[in-house]
């Protein structure tokens, strides 16, 4: 019997399997390692603010961001970056991992759709990331960071927008990785590129115009603007940017879903 397109037990089984395997295989090194970049980025901002800025931040920063809270700005960016990279890493690498372990063939033969599998993985990734980001935010809180928030509904919306962006990016990246048979260079290039283009730790207005426009091509850029409205200025999500973020994110989801089956076929043909 064929499973329905969104069979909950495939989602649950994928979640459970990944959770168990991860817990057994990477007990602490994984957790500690993934947390470090965020903690050190916030740490850098904290120390730099005191020793270099003398507790103050440049006027053009306040103009560009609408906030004088440099540390809060960097913290929100670091937490969002952690959310994005880990989400993309988890969901996007799911298939290439299967390919490497030789289980991709078994998976493709199984009569389950691709979407529930990926959603199961995304659910796992989301749970893991929420835990990781909470620890990071806890550290930042200890350093005295108090991000603004325009309300729980706005916060949920901002996180959802970022989640859509992440899911779309991970689908497309997954297809790229499977097609290229390579994960390391692809993923690092994308992470470093969005760190520069989407304005996680500095206002995008600092960038040359070309790069500012290039940033609009990745869904995280508009999603970050939404996040900034909610958590940095407290002004609430800008409706225009929210629409752009959702549109670009969903476009990535569609492209990824259309491309993935082809990429998988291509990968299977290449391996034999």
């Amino acid at each position: 019997m064929l499973s329905p397109p969104l069979s909950p037990h495939v989602i649950r089984a994928t979640f459970w399997r990944t959770w168990t395997v991860t817990r057994r295989a990477y007990p602490w090194s994984y957790f500690v390692g993934t947390l470090m970049l965020g903690v050190f980025t916030v740490g850098l901002a904290h120390l730099g603010l005191a020793a270099i800025g003398g507790g103050r931040v440049a006027g053009d920063f306040v103009t560009a961001t609408g906030s004088a809270d440099y540390l809060g700005y960097v913290t929100v960016g670091a937490a969002a970056f952690m959310f994005v990279t880990h989400g993309v890493l988890w969901a996007g690498k799911a298939l290439i991992q299967e390919q490497r372990e030789g289980t991709l063939g078994a998976l493709l033969v199984a009569p389950a759709g691709r979407l529930p599998y990926l959603l199961g993985f995304a659910a796992f990734a989301f749970t893991a990331i929420v835990l990781e980001v909470s620890v990071l935010l806890g550290c930042a809180y200890a350093l005295g960071v108090r991000p603004a928030a325009s309300g729980p509904g706005d916060a949920a919306l901002a996180i959802l927008v970022l989640g859509v962006a992440v899911f779309g990016m991970s689908l497309v990246l997954s297809a790229v990785m499977i097609t290229a048979g390579e994960a390391h260079i692809t993923q690092n290039s994308v992470f470093l590129a969005i760190a520069l283009l989407s304005g996680f730790t500095f206002p995008r207005r600092y960038l040359p115009g070309v790069l500012q426009w290039l940033g609009e091509l990745v869904p995280t850029t508009a999603a970050m603007d939404v996040l900034r409205g909610v958590f940095t200025t407290g002004a609430g999500p800008a409706p225009g940017r929210t629409a752009v973020a959702l549109a670009v994110g969903l476009l990535y989801v569609v492209v990824g879903l259309l491309w993935l089956p082809r990429a998988e076929r291509h990968a299977m043909e290449r391996s034999y």
Partner: peptide
């Protein structure tokens, strides 16, 4: 693709770091 890890990555990282630290340096 090695040119990415050899040149592009460190340059992107350098640019992001510069922009992050700049608001602290341009202070009175």
């Amino acid at each position: 693709l090695v040119v990415f890890s050899m040149l592009v990555w460190p340059l992107m990282q350098l640019a992001a770091t510069y922009y992050t630290v700049r608001p602290l340096a341009a202070t009175p």
